[in-house]
Design a binder for these strands. Structure first.
Length: 266
DNA sequence: GGCCAGGCTTTTC
DNA sequence: GAAAAGCATGGC
């Protein structure tokens, strides 16, 4: 049954939030609205000013959490603006919020992301949902670890995930048999979470940090990919300041989106 | 058509 | 140990 939810989110950019490379299951429609999945919930979402209008099968509490309405982004931006190199990214990408995504989906998504481009990442995830998820109105849910753990490498061939297929299987098997416990990582420090995640075949520090930031909402996680290496070399040659540790996940997302949006204005 | 992609593992120096 | 090669696939 369709439910209507309206959220008021100040200084928010739905478009930047959904297209900045933290999630891969939303599509922009010609009218500027978005349709896609948050976890197993299909939704249509439209922003108008500070208002966000959502049509879905779930309630406001879910969406307030998903769009991270309890985190004070203005305070974080104010702290980060202490650093000169953060000011323009805050101006240009400061409407992004760190979505509270499903940890298992984030793990798979960022395994798939390695040495890959965003359009193709979306394609692989889409095929994965269609092949192994559940059909629901609007599309397919993200497949459970249990479902993927029952697959062979040949079963994953239609996804065309390349060398990442074997990594997905190892992740699914470890989560399914309890060698990796996602609920435990949720209650752990970022450092402990990284140590647990990188045991998975094909998960290194960068993917682990993405999972911790996007799947576990650990705001001190700091994924460094090829783009962030450029940012750091250019603006933070001594590394990202330690004093800003608790905000560096948000900072990373602003910096990442800004260099990708304005590579010639860095 | 060639370069490169939100890297990681394996091999080689 | 550090650096380089190999990996699957396809977007641009």
């Amino acid at each position: 049954m369709a439910q209507q939810t309206t959220l008021t989110i100040p200084n928010f950019s739905l478009r930047d939030t959904l297209l900045c490379g933290q999630c891969f299951r939303w599509e922009e429609l010609p009218d500027g609205s978005f349709s896609g999945f948050a976890g197993s919930h299909f939704a249509s979402v439209l922003q108008s000013g500070d208002q966000v209008f959502i049509t879905s099968d779930t309630d406001a509490a879910f969406w307030e959490a998903y769009f991270d309405c309890d985190t004070d982004y203005e305070a974080a931006k104010k702290r980060l603006s202490h650093y000169r190199a953060m000011r323009r990214p805050i101006e240009r990408a400061g409407g992004i919020r760190l979505l509270r995504q499903d940890p298992w989906e984030a793990l798979c998504s960022f395994i798939i992301s390695q040495n890959n481009n965003i359009p193709r990442i979306k394609g692989i995830i889409s095929r994965m949902c269609e092949a192994f998820g559940e059909a629901v109105p609007g599309g397919y849910t993200f497949p459970a670890a249990e479902r993927l753990a029952a697959c062979t490498l040949d079963d994953l061939a239609p996804l065309r995930a390349g060398f990442r297929g074997k990594y997905l299987l190892d992740a699914a098997q470890r989560v399914n048999d309890g060698r990796v416990v996602l609920d435990r990582i949720a209650a752990s420090s970022t450092e402990e979470g990284e140590a647990e995640l990188i045991q998975i075949f094909g998960v290194g520090v960068k993917v682990a940090q993405c999972v911790l930031l996007y799947g576990f909402h650990k705001l001190d996680a700091f994924p460094v990919d090829v783009w962030m290496k450029k940012v750091l070399a250019l603006h933070f040659p001594n590394g990202f300041p330690k004093q800003a540790k608790k905000d560096r996940g948000i900072a990373q997302q602003f910096l990442f989106h800004d260099i990708r949006s304005f590579p010639d204005q860095q």
